[in-house]
Every structure is written in C-alpha cells, then in structure tokens.
C-alpha cells in the first residue's frame, strides 16, 4: 500500500471507530452533567454532578432490576449449559429410538420465527398463572435449540474411545459428560454461555408481556418503562438509567471481546 492510501485508510477507520465509540462516551459523560449542559459535544463535564444517578435511583427500583436481570440471565445460562449439554450429549453420542426426530425438530425450531409463537406462549403463561413471576421469565428459555446444536456439533468431534475408556473405568453417562466432555468443551461452553446470557440480558419484548410488577422487572424492561413513563424527566437521568445496563456489559466485553464476537456472530448465523 502506498503511504497516502495507508494514511487515508487509517483516517477512515478512525472516523468509523469514533462513530461507534463516541456516542457511548458522550452518553457516559452526559450522565455526569447538569441538565443545561447535556447538549454539548464536550466529553468532560463542566460541572461534574451525580445528581442524575441519585434521581434515577430514587425514582425506580433499578437496584432490584439489576438483581432480577442477573438472576434471570444466570439461571437461564446455567440451565442452557447443564440441561442443554445433557441433551446434546445424548443426541450426539447415544443411540436411541427418537434421536433422528429430536434432531430434525431441533433444526426445525430454528426456522420458526419468534413472532409466530409469541402470542400463544403469552396466553400459555397467562393460563398457567405465571404472569408476574420469575418462572414466566425463565422457563420458556430453559432450553435453546441453537445451543443444543452447537454443543452437539462439538461433542461429535470427541473420540469415541474416550467414552469407551470412561465406561470401562466405571463412569455413568452424566459423569462422562461432566468430567470428560465438559473440560474438553470449554470453548464451546463459553460461546454458548455468552450468547445465552447476553440474549437474556438484553431481552425486552418478553418481559414487557409477562411482567407488570415493577419489583420483578428486568433492567432493560424497567429502563424502557421508565423512559416511556416519563419518569426520567431529563435526558441525563434516562441515560444514567441506561448506564446501569451498559456498564457491566462493556466491562465484560473489554476483557472477553474475542469470545463475545465469536459467540454472538456464531449464534446469529446459526440461529
């Protein structure tokens, strides 16, 4: 590459990078500014204030929503990993009548758009009396077809002799799964864990349907309700609320960005 071209390329990349980063930096700084200063482009607040956070925290139960989100996303992730790998293990490594059907149905599930099943699922939750419960937020996500297919694909690559050897050592299937397969499948498990957790963490539509009690709302839901209900009042306050949702994700992303990209791009393509 000629130096001119190279310089142009870096300039373009920098400009592109700024359009992705600057809004978030501006958001972070705006939450620390008094209302009249919010519109300014400057990133360093003139009058540093935590007032936006105080107001946000006092007007809606964001602490509780944070805990709800962590609880719901962790439970779902744990289930998708544990129950999902049990299912994937059986589908990949055991012979039993029904295996082909299970495989076919799992792939079929990926083709069904979520909108098709949204309303019947909602009525099911209503009929089960699960409205305003954690159960409603968690149970429909206990399994994930994308996760099962990814894990199955990974499990298929583990040599049969390891299973044979473990069986001769007296291990049962669960023990083989968790003491032999899991240590070998760490990368696949990490990928599944990330996209599952992030999917749950960012989900809004489902909680909006099945939870009305503020005490049970997840973060993105409470944030949306807060914004629409006009509870924020000013831009600074609503951005401060958004920060509660963003900061943990960005911190995790900074450390694990390679896994995040692999996980979320991979799941998106397969799902």
């Amino acid at each position: 590459m000629r130096p001119v071209v190279r310089a142009g390329l870096y300039a373009a990349l920098t400009l592109a990078a700024l359009t992705f980063i600057y809004p978030f930096l501006w958001m972070a700084s705006s939450t620390l500014k008094p209302p009249f200063e919010v519109g300014s482009l400057a990133l360093i607040p003139h009058d540093l204030t935590f007032e936006n956070y105080r107001i946000m925290w006092s007007r809606a139960p964001f602490g509780r929503a944070l805990l709800n989100s962590v609880f719901v996303a962790s439970t779902i992730t744990a289930s998708v990993l544990v129950l999902g790998s049990m299912t994937a293990y059986a589908m990949a490594r055991l012979t039993f009548p029904g295996r082909r059907v299970l495989n076919a149905v799992t792939m079929g599930v990926l083709l069904v758009p979520g909108q098709l099943t949204l309303i019947p699922l909602y009525t099911l939750i209503v009929q089960l009396g699960w409205i305003d419960t954690y159960t409603a937020l968690i149970v429909p996500y206990l399994f994930n077809a994308t996760a099962i297919l990814m894990l199955r694909q990974f499990f298929l690559q583990i040599p049969q002799s390891l299973i044979d050897s473990a069986r001769m050592d007296g291990m049962g299937e669960l023990r083989i799964l968790f003491t032999i397969f899991w240590p070998l499948a760490r990368p696949a498990l990490a990928i599944v864990a990330i996209f599952t957790f992030m999917g749950s963490w960012n989900e809004v539509l489902w909680p909006l349907l099945v939870v009305r009690d503020q005490q049970l709302m997840t973060l993105p839901q409470l944030l949306t309700v807060f914004q629409l209900g006009g509870g924020a009042g000013t831009l600074g306050v609503s951005l401060a609320a958004a920060m509660v949702l963003v900061v943990p994700v960005v911190v995790a992303y900074m450390f694990l960005q390679r896994y995040f990209i692999e996980s979320m791009a991979g799941a998106g393509v397969k799902g």
Binding site: S161, L162, D164, S165, R167, I180, L184
Partner: peptide
C-alpha cells in the same frame, strides 16, 4: 454385565488418554 463390572482393561488404538 456393564463394562465396569467385568474386571477387564483395554488399550485403545488412539490411546484414549484424557487430554485434560
């Protein structure tokens, strides 16, 4: 009998050593 109850040991073609 289940494999573990037979008191036999096997050496596999690819050794089947637990990599971790």
């Amino acid at each position: 009998l289940a494999p573990r109850d037979r008191d036999v040991a096997m050496v596999f073609q690819d050794y089947a050593l637990y990599p971790h």
